[in-house]
């Protein structure tokens, strides 16, 4: 979880932004729009998480993009402008262009999702949906509490069982070798298979103990919930986040920019076709592109603006 200028805005604003960004990236299939989205997503990720984001970019989406750029022209032979032939199959400019656009789209979506996971922690997510589905969001919260606990408990059970009786090391080695030999002679099983079955058996035992543990302890949890009045009529929902005027302004701005881009898309500004020949809609793209870029850049602008304000207030001290 990180704390930045953008997380100071209400989770609903954060959520609207990310959904808008991801949907618009997928919907507007146009090299300029995709390039803007990719650039903004990478820049935002770096602004939020610094070096970690750069590492992530080169570890995962970068490779997916390269793959897409190489594989599409190799396997798709549509398109009229042939560059060269590999054996019998033509490699076309159009397939290249399509591969490049898909690469940018996938890269941008992955990077926006990365930003999303950095900003939208479980409690911010719940703040968005708590009001719409309060009981579901409580269950969600309980699951989030349970999972890490169960994982840790499983580890503890396994080690506690193992340590109940630890034979001395040398003796243990002898026994194991002996047992394996005997098994070998008996039915040709290898010692590796032998340890595999014991491993599975051990795993099953841990799972069975873990299940008992979860059921037994959930009785306590249920008691604790009822003791604090769970199940009474008229449950309310505490909201940790309050909407400020800035949230409303920022949210409306995102929605207005979204509306403008949707209108641009609907009126054909963003028309773009790869096959059979690369073809643009014919209308000037620049104004629409600026509007779209403005939308993608909302968190960046907020971050930079905050930085400026911060240095200014520092200089006053």
């Amino acid at each position: 979880m990180i704390e930045t200028a953008f997380t100071k805005y209400h989770p609903v604003v954060n959520f609207i932004f990310f959904i808008t960004a991801i949907v618009m990236t997928v919907v507007i299939f146009h090299p300029a729009a995709l390039a803007v989205s990719l650039a903004a997503s990478v820049a935002s990720a770096v602004k939020f998480s610094g070096k970690k984001a750069v590492k992530y970019f080169f570890a995962f989406p970068f490779f997916v993009m390269i793959l897409s750029m190489i594989l599409n022209p190799l396997f798709v032979h549509k398109g009229l402008t042939v560059l060269f032939y590999i054996g019998e199959s033509p490699v076309t400019v159009e397939a290249f262009a399509y591969g490049a656009c898909t690469a940018m789209m996938v890269g941008a979506v992955i990077m926006w999702s990365y930003c999303y996971t950095q900003i939208m922690t479980s409690d911010r997510f719940m703040a968005v949906f708590g009001k719409i589905a309060p009981s579901t969001s409580l269950v969600f919260s309980m699951i989030l509490r349970f999972l890490p606990r169960a994982r840790r408990q499983a580890g503890k059970i396994a080690s506690a069982q193992e340590l109940l009786f630890v034979p001395p090391e040398e003796v243990a080695a002898e026994i194991e070798a002996g047992a394996a030999n005997a098994a070998d002679e008996a039915d040709g099983q290898t010692s590796r298979e032998q340890t595999k079955t014991t491993k599975i058996k051990k795993g099953m035992r841990v799972m069975s103990v873990l299940t008992t543990w979860a059921l037994e302890n959930s009785i306590d949890t249920a008691d604790s919930m009822r003791a604090r009045g769970y199940g009474l009529a008229g449950r309310t929902m505490y909201r940790k986040y309050r909407a400020r005027p800035a949230d409303i302004i920022c949210g409306s701005l995102i929605l207005a920019l979204l509306a403008a881009s949707v209108w641009a898309k609907a009126s054909g500004v963003w028309d773009f076709y790869c096959y059979p020949e690369i073809e643009f809609g014919g209308r000037p793209v620049l104004p629409a592109c600026i509007l779209l870029a403005a939308m993608y850049a909302v968190p960046l602008v907020i971050e930079v603006w905050e930085d400026i304000k911060w240095t200014r207030s520092l200089s006053k001290i």
Partner: peptide, 24 residues
């Protein structure tokens, strides 16, 4: 451990109050 219901400290504090329908 068993008595804690939710995943966040602030939510746990609010849990009982939510149940009795207190104003947010």
């Amino acid at each position: 451990d068993n008595q804690i219901v939710t995943d966040k400290v602030w939510h746990e504090l609010a849990f009982g109050l939510e149940n009795i329908g207190m104003d947010p």
